[in-house]
Design a protein around this nucleic acid. Structure first.
Length: 768
RNA sequence: GCCCGGGUGGUGGAAUGGUAUACACGAAGGACUUAAAAUCCUUUGCCUUUAUCGGCUUGUGGGUUCGAAUCCCACCCCGGGCACCA
């Protein structure tokens, strides 16, 4: 009989169903994929790499007796469906439903063992009811606030963006250069959780790279606040990580947006210069502003350096950020690269105060030109200087900014708040607050969402006082729904609570989370923040949502480029499954390279996986029962490799076994054991060939694996010259005797033996 | 510029101090076939050689060690992240 993958895969996909029971007697294993945005173009072969790995783990854990929760859903709010609606007039709801159906069909063909009864969709009102509920809880706890500070604005998407969505000055979605704009925004106080988000990283089994990216993003810096008095009686506060360099602070710089600037303009002798400089910087995008360091003095104004009483000039400059620290810095050109550039350009004083190397010297060292602190090491001087002066105090700063949470777009969760002239802001108690139908999806670009034009939805009576009130018309960002979806899979149909607490206690946390590394400081940081809030209000019982994280490597196109529809270099899994079968695709994707490495796709390799499965299909079954050492070594290897995420070597060890059996044949009993090893990787063919219903994970026999002979290497002067098969456990003298009798060895021995290195059962090295 | 990965045959890769190149792809030769595909067998790091023997080889140069792809130092190259965060 031929190996007909089509009928076998169809048969087992119809027959095998996976349903997670709330059976608390078993140990649980929560194995989660990052759920996809169901785009119109469907999956390419890169997407399933992570899904196949999580499926292998899920099936493996089930075989070992775990109650496995392995669900899938759709992160379906977002811009592509909305932009498509703007172009075609087709409601995002309709496109989303089509795309979900398409994605689901593709996933099912791969044979992934999801519990589809728990499927969720972030755009379903029964789901986003709870997204809105969490937002309201945050609002009630003072973690959501309105702000009109200038924020990142994408002129193409016509919406505000969070810091995390700005990649090298460009919009994360469309690549357009981001500008600043004053827009009324809802902002979430993620900075309140900065320390916990930082500290709790320690206990997570995540790739070090991702943890490091989060640490850098949070960007905690220890240093000092310093208060500088000005000659006009006012004060300027700055933050520095190097209070030991204070004697070298030769000028003060304010950011162009600093609140002090507008108040001092009339006292300056160069008012016109300053006004035109401010005008100039205001009109530049962030990227333009970063091109070159420029500045202008505030002539007539000076500050007093508190450590030595010296008068120093005050400037404004484009490289001082308004959004970090206090939007003002003390400039120490001798010990800071940027200040050095600036001082050189504008001829400002440079005073070396830390000795150690050529200027600008940015490392620590021994203090000079620093009065009574001369001779101290930087680390000591930092503390001493902070203690000595009243106007200097210890301080900590973070790079992390609060999360700009509202979007001026249509296809997102409505923010369930009401603005009443009399009562202020009140919460919508009647959740879900459903997204209304609109006639036009276009963003207005004025800072108002398309929802603002639906008068009868916007204008309502205040539920408190009955007076006239307006609904909030901003929507939530793409990331909102994915901040907590892993909790809903535990209890997807609960109408009374986000998740039942007994179920939550059993299934949380996620034991294994698999997805791309591109979410390092977006989804993964946001979800941790929400989870910690839910922990604080008693909804969840764990401090962290995702215990172990693995990132799959990107699968690149033939040309080494990223696969994308616009480049026309994508490969669809559907074609591969049609031609070679889902099992071949699964085996190939796992065999291709280590799971976390990026790799280029090539169809050629797929035939290797297919040939392997053909060999499995055609194994000759024989009666003679011999103890099969290689089989048991393979069981051990595959077990260890699955646990260690080394799928490529697991498969290669199975190939070695099958190559051997192709020559020798094997017994039904041994073949059955092998098929169970293969089952997580290639479930359809394995189920077809396994005899009986038992698919528990095979155990290897430790005593069978033990080899009683060993191949020992013989070296002369460190060079390999011969190898010999010996019984295990021979002594150095015995081995030496045997080695010296070998022809290949004798040839190299001339003169006295100086020394012999002997490694038990491995190697002998004779030095002459 | 700074912070993380990584560099092994024609290709994807294996080996984390002890026989480098497992496994797979590709290629070459052979069997079967009218022919092709599929399948099976053989060969396949490089140099020298008819073949053996031998020598060389894990980005480059040095070091530690009886012994280094693996550890240390310097440099070169590739990928990813951050990017005026004071």
């Amino acid at each position: 009989m031929n190996y007909d993958h089509k009928s076998i895969e169809k048969k087992w996909q119809e027959k095998e169903h996976f349903k997670t029971e709330d059976d608390y007697s078993k140990p649980k294993f929560y194995c989660l994929d990052m759920f996809p945005y169901p785009s119109g173009v469907g999956l390419h072969v890169g997407h399933p790499r992570g899904y196949i790995a999580s499926d292998i783990l899920s099936r493996y854990k089930r075989m070992r007796g775990f109650n496995v929760l392995h669900p899938m859903g759709w992160d379906a709010f977002g811009l592509p469906a909305e932009n498509y609606a703007i172009k075609t007039g087709i409601h995002p709801k309709i496109t989303t439903a089509d795309n979900v159906a398409k994605f689901k069909a593709q996933l099912e063909k791969i044979g992934l063992s999801y519990d589809w009864s728990r499927e969720i969709n972030t755009t379903d009102p029964n789901y986003y009811k709870w997204t809105q509920w969490i937002f309201l809880k945050m609002f009630e706890h003072g973690l959501a606030y309105e702000s009109v500070l200038p924020i990142n604005w994408c002129p193409s998407c016509k919406t505000g963006l969070a810091n995390e969505e700005v990649v090298s000055g460009n919009c994360e979605r469309c690549g357009t250069a981001v500008t600043k704009k004053d827009v009324r925004q809802w902002v979430l106080k993620i900075t309140k959780y900065a320390d916990r988000l930082l500290e709790d990283l320690e206990e997570l089994d995540w790739p070090e790279k991702i943890k490091e990216m989060q640490r850098n993003w949070i960007g905690k810096s220890h240093g000092a606040d310093v208060l500088f008095k000005l000659n006009n009686g006012k004060e300027v506060k700055v933050f520095t990580t190097r209070p030991d360099t204070l004697f070298g602070a030769t000028f003060l710089i304010l950011s162009p947006e600093h609140s002090l600037v507008s108040g001092v303009l009339d006292d300056l002798t160069n008012k016109q210069d300053v006004v035109s400089y401010l005008e100039e910087t205001k009109n530049k995008s962030d990227i333009e502003r970063m091109e070159e360091k420029t500045g202008v003095p505030l002539s007539g104004l000076f500050a007093i350096n508190p450590v030595n009483g010296k008068q120093i000039p005050v400037w404004i400059a484009n490289y001082v950020l308004s959004s970090y620290g206090y939007g003002a810095i003390m400039s120490v050109p001798a010990h800071d690269q940027r200040d050095y550039e600036f001082a050189t350009k504008y001829n400002l004083d440079i005073i070396e105060v830390v000795s150690g190397g050529e200027l600008p010297y940015t490392s620590e060292g021994e203090l000079i030109n620093s009065g009574s602190f001369n001779g101290m090491k930087s680390s000591e001087a930092k503390d001493k200087i902070i203690q000595e002066f009243d106007v200097i105090s210890e301080s900590i700063n973070y790079k992390l900014r609060d999360w700009v949470f509202s979007r001026q777009r249509y296809w997102g969760e409505p923010i369930p708040l009401i603005h009443c002239e009399k009562c202020g802001i009140i919460t919508e108690e009647n959740l879900p607050l459903e997204l209304p139908e609109v006639e036009k999806y276009e963003p207005t670009g004025t800072g108002e969402s398309p929802l603002a034009s639906i008068e009868d939805w916007v204008n309502i009576k205040c539920p408190k006082c009955g007076g006239s009130a307006k609904r909030e018309t901003n929507t939530m960002p793409q990331w909102a729904g994915s901040c907590w979806y892993y909790l809903r899979f535990i209890d997807p149909d609960n109408d009374n609570a986000l998740v039942d607490s007994e179920k939550e206690k059993y299934f949380q946390p996620v034991d294994l989370y698999i997805g791309g590394a591109e979410h390092a400081v977006l989804h993964l940081l946001y979800a941790r923040f929400w989870h910690k809030f839910l922990y604080d209000i008693g909804v969840v019982s764990t401090k962290e949502p995702f215990l172990k994280l693995k990132n799959q490597g990107t699968i690149l196109a033939y040309d080494g480029q990223k696969m994308s529809k616009s480049k026309g270099n994508t490969v669809s899994p559907d074609d591969m499954i049609e031609k070679y079968g889902a099992d071949s695709l699964r085996v190939y994707e796992m065999f291709l390279a280590p799971f976390e490495d990026a790799v280029s796709w090539s169809d050629n390799g797929l035939v290797g996986a297919r040939r392997f499965l053909e060999k499995v299909w055609n194994i000759n079954l024989i009666e003679t029962n011999v103890e099969d050492k290689l089989l048991h070594q393979t069981i051990k290897k595959v077990t260890e490799d699955i646990e260690g995420f080394k799928f490529n070597t697991a498969i290669s060890s199975m190939m070695i076994l099958i190559n051997e059996w192709t020559k020798t044949g094997t017994t039904r009993e041994n073949f059955n054991l092998f098929l169970k090893l293969l089952y997580p990787f290639a479930p359809h063919i394995s189920r077809e060939l396994i005899e009986g219903d038992d698919i528990s994970w095979p155990q290897f026999s430790e005593s069978l694996i033990e080899e009683d002979t060993v191949t020992l290497a013989i070296q002369v002067n460190g060079k390999f010259r011969d190898s010999v098969l010996l019984t295990k456990g021979l002594s150095q003298e015995e081995v030496e005797g045997i080695a010296l009798e070998r022809e290949k060895v004798k040839k190299w021995i001339s003169g006295d033996i100086k020394k012999v290195i002997f490694v038990q059962d491995k190697l002998i090295n004779i030095l002459i």
